[in-house]
Protein backbone atom coordinates (compact mmCIF):
# COMPACT_ATOMS: atom_id res chain seq x y z
CA UNK A 1 0.00 0.00 0.00
CA UNK A 2 1.19 3.51 -0.77
CA UNK A 3 1.29 6.03 2.08
CA UNK A 4 -1.38 8.64 1.45
CA UNK A 5 -2.16 11.68 3.57
CA UNK A 6 -4.67 14.48 3.89
CA UNK A 7 -2.63 17.63 3.34
CA UNK A 8 -5.23 20.40 3.18
CA UNK A 9 -8.91 21.11 3.62
CA UNK A 10 -11.39 23.95 3.32
CA UNK A 11 -15.02 24.35 4.33
CA UNK A 12 -17.79 26.81 3.64
CA UNK A 13 -19.48 28.33 6.66
CA UNK A 14 -22.56 26.18 7.15
CA UNK A 15 -25.78 28.08 6.53
CA UNK A 16 -29.44 27.33 7.10
CA UNK A 17 -30.25 28.76 3.67
CA UNK A 18 -28.21 30.21 0.83
CA UNK A 19 -29.03 32.17 -2.32
CA UNK A 20 -25.90 31.27 -4.29
CA UNK A 21 -26.10 28.45 -6.84
CA UNK A 22 -24.32 25.24 -5.80
CA UNK A 23 -21.46 26.08 -8.19
CA UNK A 24 -21.13 29.59 -6.82
CA UNK A 25 -20.81 28.06 -3.33
CA UNK A 26 -18.25 25.60 -4.56
CA UNK A 27 -15.75 27.86 -6.32
CA UNK A 28 -14.46 29.76 -3.26
CA UNK A 29 -13.96 26.51 -1.33
CA UNK A 30 -12.13 24.81 -4.20
CA UNK A 31 -9.90 27.88 -4.56
CA UNK A 32 -9.30 27.94 -0.80
CA UNK A 33 -8.23 24.31 -0.52
CA UNK A 34 -5.81 24.73 -3.45
CA UNK A 35 -4.38 27.80 -1.75
CA UNK A 36 -4.16 26.03 1.60
CA UNK A 37 -2.24 23.20 -0.04
CA UNK A 38 -0.08 25.55 -2.09
CA UNK A 39 -0.74 23.50 -5.20
CA UNK A 40 -1.86 24.50 -8.69
CA UNK A 41 -4.97 23.10 -10.33
CA UNK A 42 -2.86 21.54 -13.04
CA UNK A 43 -1.00 19.53 -10.40
CA UNK A 44 -4.16 17.79 -9.20
CA UNK A 45 -4.10 14.26 -10.64
CA UNK A 46 -7.68 13.25 -9.89
CA UNK A 47 -10.87 15.02 -8.87
CA UNK A 48 -13.74 13.27 -7.12
CA UNK A 49 -17.09 14.70 -6.04
CA UNK A 50 -19.89 13.56 -3.74
CA UNK A 51 -23.42 14.96 -4.02
CA UNK A 52 -27.04 13.94 -4.36
CA UNK A 53 -29.58 14.68 -7.11
CA UNK A 54 -32.59 14.35 -4.83
CA UNK A 55 -31.24 17.05 -2.53
CA UNK A 56 -30.83 19.44 -5.45
CA UNK A 57 -34.09 18.43 -7.09
CA UNK A 58 -32.42 18.05 -10.45
CA UNK A 59 -31.18 14.97 -12.32
CA UNK A 60 -27.45 15.05 -13.17
CA UNK A 61 -27.07 17.97 -10.77
CA UNK A 62 -23.41 17.08 -10.19
CA UNK A 63 -22.63 17.91 -13.82
CA UNK A 64 -22.57 21.65 -13.15
CA UNK A 65 -20.02 21.15 -10.35
CA UNK A 66 -17.46 20.45 -13.09
CA UNK A 67 -17.86 24.16 -13.94
CA UNK A 68 -16.16 24.99 -10.65
CA UNK A 69 -13.03 22.99 -11.36
CA UNK A 70 -11.50 24.78 -14.34
CA UNK A 71 -11.66 21.45 -16.15
CA UNK A 72 -9.77 22.71 -19.16
CA UNK A 73 -7.76 21.02 -20.49
CA UNK A 74 -10.00 18.06 -19.53
CA UNK A 75 -9.40 16.37 -16.18
CA UNK A 76 -9.55 12.89 -14.70
CA UNK A 77 -12.71 13.12 -12.65
CA UNK A 78 -15.44 11.00 -11.10
CA UNK A 79 -18.58 11.37 -8.99
CA UNK A 80 -20.26 9.37 -6.25
CA UNK A 81 -23.91 9.72 -5.31
CA UNK A 82 -22.86 9.86 -1.66
CA UNK A 83 -21.07 11.96 0.92
CA UNK A 84 -17.77 13.50 -0.21
CA UNK A 85 -16.00 11.15 2.23
CA UNK A 86 -16.78 8.32 -0.19
CA UNK A 87 -15.22 10.44 -2.94
CA UNK A 88 -12.11 10.54 -0.76
CA UNK A 89 -12.22 6.74 -0.55
CA UNK A 90 -12.37 6.47 -4.36
CA UNK A 91 -9.45 8.89 -4.63
CA UNK A 92 -7.46 6.86 -2.10
CA UNK A 93 -8.09 3.73 -4.21
CA UNK A 94 -7.02 5.63 -7.34
CA UNK A 95 -3.77 6.72 -5.73
CA UNK A 96 -3.14 3.11 -4.64
CA UNK A 97 -3.21 2.02 -8.30
CA UNK A 98 -0.26 4.32 -8.91
CA UNK A 99 -2.07 6.19 -11.68
CA UNK A 100 -2.01 9.52 -9.80
CA UNK A 101 -0.24 11.03 -6.78
CA UNK A 102 -2.67 13.78 -5.79
CA UNK A 103 -6.43 14.20 -5.61
CA UNK A 104 -8.87 16.95 -4.75
CA UNK A 105 -12.11 15.58 -3.32
CA UNK A 106 -15.17 17.53 -2.36
CA UNK A 107 -18.75 17.13 -1.22
CA UNK A 108 -21.52 19.66 -1.47
CA UNK A 109 -25.22 19.88 -0.78
CA UNK A 110 -27.93 22.40 -0.29
CA UNK A 111 -30.18 20.93 2.38
CA UNK A 112 -32.43 23.98 2.21
CA UNK A 113 -33.55 23.35 -1.41
CA UNK A 114 -36.27 21.01 -0.22
CA UNK A 115 -37.59 19.38 2.96
CA UNK A 116 -34.57 17.23 3.75
CA UNK A 117 -36.39 15.13 6.36
CA UNK A 118 -38.93 14.18 3.72
CA UNK A 119 -36.41 13.75 0.91
CA UNK A 120 -34.52 11.17 2.96
CA UNK A 121 -37.68 9.05 3.01
CA UNK A 122 -36.88 8.21 -0.61
CA UNK A 123 -33.97 6.06 0.60
CA UNK A 124 -36.42 3.52 2.02
CA UNK A 125 -37.83 0.38 0.38
CA UNK A 126 -39.93 1.92 -2.41
CA UNK A 127 -42.53 -0.84 -2.44
CA UNK A 128 -43.59 -1.24 1.18
CA UNK A 129 -41.97 1.42 3.42
CA UNK A 130 -41.52 4.53 1.28
CA UNK A 131 -45.23 4.88 0.39
CA UNK A 132 -45.97 5.35 4.13
CA UNK A 133 -43.71 8.47 4.06
CA UNK A 134 -42.03 8.11 7.44
CA UNK A 135 -39.65 11.07 7.60
CA UNK A 136 -36.03 10.94 8.74
CA UNK A 137 -36.73 12.18 12.27
CA UNK A 138 -39.50 9.62 12.75
CA UNK A 139 -37.24 6.79 11.61
CA UNK A 140 -34.51 8.01 13.98
CA UNK A 141 -37.05 8.31 16.80
CA UNK A 142 -38.02 4.65 16.37
CA UNK A 143 -34.39 3.73 16.92
CA UNK A 144 -33.98 6.10 19.86
CA UNK A 145 -37.08 4.59 21.50
CA UNK A 146 -35.69 1.08 21.10
CA UNK A 147 -32.34 2.17 22.55
CA UNK A 148 -33.99 3.82 25.54
CA UNK A 149 -36.36 0.91 26.23
CA UNK A 150 -33.55 -1.62 26.05
CA UNK A 151 -31.37 0.48 28.34
CA UNK A 152 -28.57 0.89 25.78
CA UNK A 153 -28.80 4.66 26.20
CA UNK A 154 -30.47 7.02 28.67
CA UNK A 155 -32.13 10.36 28.09
CA UNK A 156 -29.53 11.96 30.31
CA UNK A 157 -26.69 10.49 28.23
CA UNK A 158 -28.36 11.84 25.09
CA UNK A 159 -28.64 15.28 26.69
CA UNK A 160 -24.98 15.12 27.64
CA UNK A 161 -24.08 14.43 24.01
CA UNK A 162 -26.14 17.45 22.92
CA UNK A 163 -24.59 19.64 25.63
CA UNK A 164 -21.01 18.70 24.77
CA UNK A 165 -21.40 19.09 21.00
CA UNK A 166 -23.15 22.46 21.25
CA UNK A 167 -20.49 23.65 23.65
CA UNK A 168 -17.69 22.46 21.39
CA UNK A 169 -19.25 24.20 18.39
CA UNK A 170 -18.71 27.57 20.07
CA UNK A 171 -15.11 27.39 18.91
CA UNK A 172 -15.99 26.10 15.41
CA UNK A 173 -16.48 29.02 13.00
CA UNK A 174 -18.15 26.74 10.44
CA UNK A 175 -20.90 25.46 12.76
CA UNK A 176 -24.52 26.39 12.21
CA UNK A 177 -25.74 25.88 15.77
CA UNK A 178 -23.78 26.39 19.00
CA UNK A 179 -24.18 27.43 22.63
CA UNK A 180 -23.99 26.41 26.27
CA UNK A 181 -26.96 24.51 27.64
CA UNK A 182 -27.51 22.76 30.96
CA UNK A 183 -28.62 19.15 31.18
CA UNK A 184 -31.80 20.22 32.97
CA UNK A 185 -32.61 22.71 30.24
CA UNK A 186 -32.04 20.13 27.50
CA UNK A 187 -34.10 17.46 29.27
CA UNK A 188 -36.95 19.89 29.83
CA UNK A 189 -37.17 20.86 26.15
CA UNK A 190 -40.18 19.88 24.06
CA UNK A 191 -40.06 16.67 22.06
CA UNK A 192 -40.19 17.05 18.26
CA UNK A 193 -40.36 13.36 17.37
CA UNK A 194 -40.88 11.56 20.66
CA UNK A 195 -38.48 10.68 22.30
CA UNK A 196 -36.24 13.10 20.33
CA UNK A 197 -35.94 16.79 21.18
CA UNK A 198 -34.81 19.49 18.76
CA UNK A 199 -31.21 19.44 19.96
CA UNK A 200 -31.08 15.63 19.65
CA UNK A 201 -31.53 16.13 15.89
CA UNK A 202 -28.98 17.25 13.29
CA UNK A 203 -28.71 20.89 12.22
CA UNK A 204 -29.22 20.40 8.49
CA UNK A 205 -27.20 22.93 6.55
CA UNK A 206 -26.06 24.08 3.14
CA UNK A 207 -22.36 23.36 2.95
CA UNK A 208 -19.23 22.47 1.03
CA UNK A 209 -16.05 20.71 2.12
CA UNK A 210 -12.97 20.08 0.00
CA UNK A 211 -9.90 18.03 0.90
CA UNK A 212 -6.64 17.37 -0.91
CA UNK A 213 -4.82 14.08 -0.46
CA UNK A 214 -1.38 13.16 -1.73
CA UNK A 215 0.99 10.21 -1.74
CA UNK A 216 4.33 9.80 0.01
CA UNK A 217 6.96 12.46 -0.58
CA UNK A 218 4.49 14.56 -2.50
CA UNK A 219 2.49 14.87 0.73
CA UNK A 220 5.63 15.61 2.76
CA UNK A 221 6.62 18.38 0.37
CA UNK A 222 3.19 19.99 0.51
CA UNK A 223 2.47 19.88 4.24
CA UNK A 224 4.57 20.28 7.38
CA UNK A 225 2.72 17.53 9.16
CA UNK A 226 0.51 15.50 6.81
CA UNK A 227 -2.33 13.45 8.31
CA UNK A 228 -1.44 9.96 7.10
CA UNK A 229 -4.28 7.58 6.29
CA UNK A 230 -3.24 4.47 8.25
CA UNK A 231 -6.47 2.59 7.72
CA UNK A 232 -9.68 3.22 5.81
CA UNK A 233 -12.66 0.95 5.28
CA UNK A 234 -16.40 1.09 4.83
CA UNK A 235 -19.13 -1.47 5.47
CA UNK A 236 -22.88 -1.59 5.01
CA UNK A 237 -25.69 -3.47 6.71
CA UNK A 238 -29.23 -4.42 5.83
CA UNK A 239 -31.68 -1.58 5.57
CA UNK A 240 -34.67 -3.76 6.41
CA UNK A 241 -36.13 -1.85 9.34
CA UNK A 242 -37.98 -4.89 10.66
CA UNK A 243 -35.05 -7.27 10.45
CA UNK A 244 -32.12 -5.30 11.78
CA UNK A 245 -30.65 -4.51 15.13
CA UNK A 246 -31.85 -1.11 16.32
CA UNK A 247 -29.36 -0.91 19.16
CA UNK A 248 -26.04 -1.92 17.57
CA UNK A 249 -24.04 -0.85 14.53
CA UNK A 250 -22.26 -3.98 13.24
CA UNK A 251 -21.19 -2.26 10.00
CA UNK A 252 -19.42 0.50 11.95
CA UNK A 253 -17.73 -2.06 14.18
CA UNK A 254 -16.56 -4.06 11.15
CA UNK A 255 -15.21 -0.98 9.36
CA UNK A 256 -13.40 0.14 12.54
CA UNK A 257 -11.82 -3.30 12.88
CA UNK A 258 -10.62 -3.26 9.25
CA UNK A 259 -9.29 0.29 9.62
CA UNK A 260 -7.29 -0.74 12.69
CA UNK A 261 -8.99 1.63 15.13
CA UNK A 262 -8.31 -0.59 18.16
CA UNK A 263 -4.57 -1.03 17.65
CA UNK A 264 -3.70 2.15 19.54
CA UNK A 265 -5.25 5.07 21.40
CA UNK A 266 -7.37 7.52 19.39
CA UNK A 267 -6.88 11.12 20.57
CA UNK A 268 -9.74 12.71 18.68
CA UNK A 269 -12.71 11.18 16.87
CA UNK A 270 -14.90 13.18 14.53
CA UNK A 271 -18.11 11.22 14.08
CA UNK A 272 -20.86 11.76 11.56
CA UNK A 273 -23.65 10.73 13.91
CA UNK A 274 -26.69 12.86 13.05
CA UNK A 275 -28.70 12.12 16.24
CA UNK A 276 -27.54 12.11 19.87
CA UNK A 277 -28.44 8.47 20.54
CA UNK A 278 -26.55 7.53 17.36
CA UNK A 279 -23.35 9.12 18.66
CA UNK A 280 -23.64 6.90 21.73
CA UNK A 281 -24.21 3.77 19.63
CA UNK A 282 -21.36 4.69 17.32
CA UNK A 283 -18.87 5.46 20.09
CA UNK A 284 -19.57 2.03 21.50
CA UNK A 285 -19.37 0.27 18.10
CA UNK A 286 -16.01 1.92 17.37
CA UNK A 287 -14.70 0.89 20.79
CA UNK A 288 -13.80 4.46 21.77
CA UNK A 289 -13.20 5.13 25.45
CA UNK A 290 -12.85 8.01 27.90
CA UNK A 291 -9.43 8.99 26.56
CA UNK A 292 -10.83 9.99 23.15
CA UNK A 293 -12.17 13.48 22.62
CA UNK A 294 -15.37 13.11 20.60
CA UNK A 295 -16.38 15.80 18.10
CA UNK A 296 -14.39 18.85 19.16
CA UNK A 297 -16.03 20.51 16.13
CA UNK A 298 -19.55 19.97 17.46
CA UNK A 299 -20.20 17.29 14.87
CA UNK A 300 -23.29 16.79 12.74
CA UNK A 301 -25.54 17.91 15.59
CA UNK A 302 -24.27 21.45 15.12
CA UNK A 303 -23.96 21.40 11.33
CA UNK A 304 -25.08 18.59 9.08
CA UNK A 305 -24.44 19.73 5.52
CA UNK A 306 -25.65 16.56 3.82
CA UNK A 307 -23.12 15.14 1.32
CA UNK A 308 -20.23 17.04 2.89
CA UNK A 309 -20.79 16.44 6.61
CA UNK A 310 -18.79 13.20 6.53
CA UNK A 311 -15.93 14.74 4.58
CA UNK A 312 -15.99 17.67 7.02
CA UNK A 313 -15.37 15.15 9.83
CA UNK A 314 -12.33 13.88 7.91
CA UNK A 315 -11.14 17.47 7.49
CA UNK A 316 -11.57 18.18 11.21
CA UNK A 317 -9.83 14.96 12.24
CA UNK A 318 -6.94 15.75 9.87
CA UNK A 319 -6.68 19.33 11.13
CA UNK A 320 -5.89 18.05 14.66
CA UNK A 321 -2.94 16.09 13.30
CA UNK A 322 -1.76 18.87 11.02
CA UNK A 323 -1.77 21.49 13.79
CA UNK A 324 0.08 19.12 16.08
CA UNK A 325 -2.61 18.92 18.77
CA UNK A 326 -3.17 15.18 18.22
CA UNK A 327 -1.17 12.20 16.97
CA UNK A 328 -3.87 9.71 16.09
CA UNK A 329 -7.40 10.67 15.06
CA UNK A 330 -10.45 9.10 13.54
CA UNK A 331 -12.72 10.46 10.81
CA UNK A 332 -16.10 8.90 10.18
CA UNK A 333 -18.90 9.27 7.65
CA UNK A 334 -22.27 7.57 7.54
CA UNK A 335 -25.16 7.17 5.16
CA UNK A 336 -28.66 5.75 5.20
CA UNK A 337 -31.34 5.27 7.85
CA UNK A 338 -30.04 4.27 11.29
CA UNK A 339 -26.47 4.84 10.07
CA UNK A 340 -26.76 1.92 7.70
CA UNK A 341 -23.40 2.53 6.03
CA UNK A 342 -20.20 3.54 7.82
CA UNK A 343 -16.83 4.71 6.55
CA UNK A 344 -13.98 4.86 9.06
CA UNK A 345 -10.55 6.39 8.57
CA UNK A 346 -7.62 6.38 10.99
CA UNK A 347 -5.18 9.28 10.61
CA UNK A 348 -1.73 9.62 12.16
CA UNK A 349 1.07 12.17 12.32
CA UNK A 350 4.61 11.12 11.51
Amino acid sequence: MRDVAIIASAQAINAATTTATPVEMLIPVVNQVLENAGIARADIGFWCHGSCDYMTGQPFSFVSAVDALGAWPPIIESHVEADGAFALYEAWIKIQTGEVDTALVFGNGRSSSGDINRILTLQLDPYVVGPLWPDDRSIAALQARACLESGVVTERAMAEVAMRNHHNAISNPYALRRGDHTIDELMAAARVADPLRELDCPAHADGVTAVIIAAGDRARSLAKRPAWIRGIDHRIESQNLGNRSMTTLPSAAAAAHKAGVGSDKIDVAELHAPYTHQELLLTSALGLGESTSINPSGGALCANPMMSAGLARFAEAAARIMNGSADRTLGHASSGPWMQQNLVCVLEGE
Binding site: A20, T21, P22, V23, E24, I27, V30, R41, S64, V66, D67, A68, L69, G70, A71, W72
Partner: peptide, 10 residues
Protein backbone atom coordinates in the same frame (compact mmCIF):
# COMPACT_ATOMS: atom_id res chain seq x y z
CA UNK B 1 -24.82 29.43 -13.39
CA UNK B 2 -22.57 32.45 -12.78
CA UNK B 3 -19.35 30.74 -13.84
CA UNK B 4 -16.96 30.46 -16.76
CA UNK B 5 -16.63 26.70 -16.85
CA UNK B 6 -13.45 26.80 -18.91
CA UNK B 7 -11.63 28.92 -16.32
CA UNK B 8 -13.49 27.58 -13.28
CA UNK B 9 -14.10 31.07 -11.98
CA UNK B 10 -17.01 33.33 -11.10
Amino acid sequence: NGTCAKCGCL
